[in-house]
């Protein structure tokens, strides 16, 4: 597993690309997930996510995946579980203070980030892990949030139209509607 993890970090750029595609698919599936119910798909998706990411990244299922900001090197493999960079105890040659046979997760992370398109994300200060999210699907959490953001942006557009044509909306509400749309009614232009 350690070897595969090192492989993934060496090919951080490729995995970054794959990750972005996976996210796009998950976001596109938001209406389907919504229909089935996010609660109901949580367990099977989390199970799949765990299987894939354990093999590739030695994932610990913290539920708050930040691989894209850590050079595809999972920070939960750091014995101190640091989320913001290497500690001051890194051994000569870049080996871990606590597990001397392992390369420092964060030395690898910076290395991986240097090959990624959005590698500079590693400079962002990350909050502590919310331990109560452990074991849950990070993929679902991220895609669901992104889908909600997209919906919100769409809402803003509708609100702007309604405001610009305020008198039309007052006389003919259907010309600039603001009510929530049933999923089946939308998608006419897809």
């Amino acid at each position: 597993m350690y070897r595969i993890r090192l492989f993934a970090i060496r090919h951080s750029r490729a995995f970054e690309w794959i990750y972005q595609r996976v996210e796009q698919v998950m976001v596109a599936l938001d209406p389907v997930f919504g229909k089935i119910g996010y609660d109901r798909i949580e367990r099977p998706v989390a199970f799949t996510e765990r299987c894939i990411k354990t093999v590739l990244f030695d994932c610990k299922m913290c539920g708050q995946c930040v691989l894209s900001s850590t050079g595809m090197s999972c920070p939960m493999n750091c014995p101190k579980q640091l989320r913001n960079g290497p500690c001051g105890g890194v051994r000569p040659g870049g080996y871990c203070e606590v597990k001397p046979e392992m390369k420092c997760v964060w030395a690898l992370a910076w290395d991986g980030a240097s090959r990624m398109k959005n590698g500079a994300q590693i400079e962002t200060v990350l909050p502590p892990v919310e331990r109560n999210l452990e074991g849950s699907s990070s993929w679902l959490r991220v895609s669901r949030e992104k889908a909600a953001r997209l919906r919100e942006a769409k809402e803003k557009g509708r609100a702007a139209v309604a405001e610009a044509f305020a008198d039309a909306r007052a006389k003919e509400p259907a010309s600039a509607p603001l009510a929530e749309e049933p999923a089946r009614a939308c998608g006419g232009n897809k």
């Binding site: 290497p86 105890g89 890194v90 051994r91 040659g93 870049g94 420092c104 030395a107 290395d111 590693i122």
Partner: peptide, 13 residues
């Protein structure tokens, strides 16, 4: 101590 090249970036952080 290593990673030398990233220590200043870590300081910036």
């Amino acid at each position: 101590i290593p990673p030398y090249e990233w220590r200043p970036e870590r300081l910036a952080k």
